[in-house]
């Protein structure tokens, strides 16, 4: 890690987007589990996730980035599919 003399002035970040290197998934007590067969691909979960932790590949939701998902459960509440395509499970099960 850098000493105070090596840091850019005023706490600025020059390698913008380095939040992805900051792992916050360990804060989670519950994790969202993606049930692919129930998903209608409405993208509501992507819009409401405060941590941009919903993974989209080839224009499809495929699951969650557990390095950054903090387990808030908003996606599971807001999921528009019936039955829901996201279930919250206790973290210790994994």
């Amino acid at each position: 890690m850098k000493t105070w003399k090596e840091l850019p002035l005023g706490g600025i970040i020059k390698d913008v987007g380095n939040t992805k290197d900051y792992i916050t998934g360990t804060w989670r007590t519950e994790r969202p589990v993606f049930l692919e067969d129930k998903c209608t691909q409405c993208f509501m979960c992507c819009m409401v996730c405060p941590d941009s932790a919903v993974i989209i590949k080839d224009e499809k939701v495929i699951g969650f980035n557990y390095n950054h998902c903090k387990g808030c459960g908003i996606c599971a509440v807001e999921c528009l599919s019936k039955p829901k395509a996201i279930e919250m499970e206790q973290e210790e099960q994994f």
Binding site: K2, T3, W4, L7, L9
Partner: peptide
């Protein structure tokens, strides 16, 4: 880094 930034 907070402490290092304050020192700087």
């Amino acid at each position: 880094y907070y402490f290092e930034h304050k020192r700087q």
